[in-house]
Design a binder for these strands. Sequence first.
DNA 1: TCTACATCGAGAGCACTGCTCTTGACAGAG
DNA 2: CTCTGTCAAGAGCAGTGCTCTCGATGTAGA
Lengths: 235, 235
Amino acid sequence: METGDEPPARGLRARVRAEMVDEIKAVARRHLAAEGANLSLRAVARDLGMVSSAVYRYFPSRDALLTVLIVEAYDALGEATERAEAAVARRDLRGRWIASCHAVRDWALAHPAEYALIFGSPVPGYAAPPDTVGPASRTPAVLAVILRDAVAAGVVSPNRNERLPRALRADLKRLLADPRFAGIPEPVLARAMTGWIHLFGLVSFELFGRFNDMITDTGQFFDYQVRAMGTQIGL
Amino acid sequence: METGDEPPARGLRARVRAEMVDEIKAVARRHLAAEGANLSLRAVARDLGMVSSAVYRYFPSRDALLTVLIVEAYDALGEATERAEAAVARRDLRGRWIASCHAVRDWALAHPAEYALIFGSPVPGYAAPPDTVGPASRTPAVLAVILRDAVAAGVVSPNRNERLPRALRADLKRLLADPRFAGIPEPVLARAMTGWIHLFGLVSFELFGRFNDMITDTGQFFDYQVRAMGTQIGL
DNA sequence: TCTACATCGAGAGCACTGCTCTTGACAGAG
DNA sequence: CTCTGTCAAGAGCAGTGCTCTCGATGTAGA
C-alpha cells in the first residue's frame, strides 16, 4: 500500500522492501527514458525478473508509481537548481539568476523523459496529488528568493508606472505571505513570475523539438534569452 | 492507405469514403477531448457502430489518425489566429499583437485536448512528419508579420545595443529568407521569437494547470502578460 | 449486360496491457 | 513452535493495436 516512506526501516524485512521499492523506481525511470510516458508495469516487472502482480505489493497502481516518479523528479530538478544557485556568490544577483536558469535546462536535457512527465501535457484522468505541489514549487522559489535579495540589496525596485490588475495583486499578496519571500514588492514578484513562465516555455520548446530546423546552437540561444530575461527583470 | 485527399471525389464510392474519414476524425476528436491522448481506435470504431478492423481501411494506424488530427489542429489554431488578427485595423499594430495572442489562448481553452496534443510532450517514438511543419508555422508567422508591418511603419526599430549571438544571427537570416518577413531586422525578429516562446509558455502553463491555486483570474493575468510583452517588443 | 476487379465490413486471432484473485512458500513475533 | 502477516507466482478478465481471411458489394471494362 505504502510507497516507500518509513524513515530508516524497522527490521530486516522493511529494509529489503525499501530496496525493492528503490529498484522498481530505478527500472521504471530507465523504461521511462527509453519509451516515454506509456510506462509498462509488466515490462518493469519482467526486467526485475518477477511477475507483474508482484509489483502491486509495492505500488497499488501504475499511476501511483508515476506519481512517485513525478514527485522525485520535481525534487531532483529543485535540488539541482538550488545547488547551482547556491554555488554563485550571494552578491552576484544576475549570476545567480543565470545559473538557476541554466541549471533547469541542464537538468531537463539530462532527464528529458522525466521533464516531459512533469511539464508535458497532463494525463486527462490524472489529478495531481497534493504531495506534488511542495516539490513543484522549489524551483520557482529559487527564482523568487533571488529577487528578494535583489530588492534587499537595492538592485531591483518596483517601477512607478508598473501597474498590475487588481486580481493579480491579490494573488501576489497571498503568495507573499510565505516568509521566504518577505519584502518583495508585488510588481517585482510579477516580474519573477514572468521570468518563470518564460524560462519553462523556453526549455519546453527546446525539449519538445520546437526549435528543430530553426535554431542550430540552442545552448547559445538559451543563454542569450536568459540574459535578456535577467536584464528585463532588472538584474 | 490514403487519409482523405483526392480533391472532389470521383464517384459515389469515393464520396462515402470521404464522409467516413470525416466521421472517424470527428468521433476521434470527441474521444480525445473526453479522455486525452490515449485514444482508443476500438472505442472510436464502437461509437461508429463498426468493428475495429474496419477503421484500418481508412487510417493505416492509430498514429496516422493522430497525425491527421495534429495537422488539422495546427491549421485550426493558425486560422483562428489569422482571423482574429485580420479583424483589427492594420495600423493598430499593438492591437493586432494583443488580438493574436488572445486568439491563441481562446482556441486553446476551447480545444484543450487538441492543444495538448500539439504542445504537450511528444510521444517518444512519434516523429513529427514533415506535413506538420507548414501548419505549425502559421501562428508564429502571424506574429512575425505584425512586426514586419511595425518596422515598415516606423513603429519598431532595432535598438543600437541589441546584440545577438553569432549563430542566432545566422538562423534568423535563414528565417528571413521567407518573403513574408522581408524587411525585418534580425534583432526585431529575435524579439518576435521571444514573444512567441513566452506566449506559448503562458498558455501551456495555464492549460496544464500550473496556475491552479495561484492565479484566480487567469484571463486578466493573460491580458496583463500579453500587453507587457507587446510593450517589451516595442508595440 | 455481364464479368472481372477493387473495395469494404465483419470476425477471428495474436501479443500486449493494467489489474484482481487465489495459492502456496516463507519469515518474524508471540 | 505455532501463528500471523508478507511475499512471489500463476491464472484469469477486460481491454488495447494490429493482421489476416472471408464473404458481400460497388465499379469499371469488355
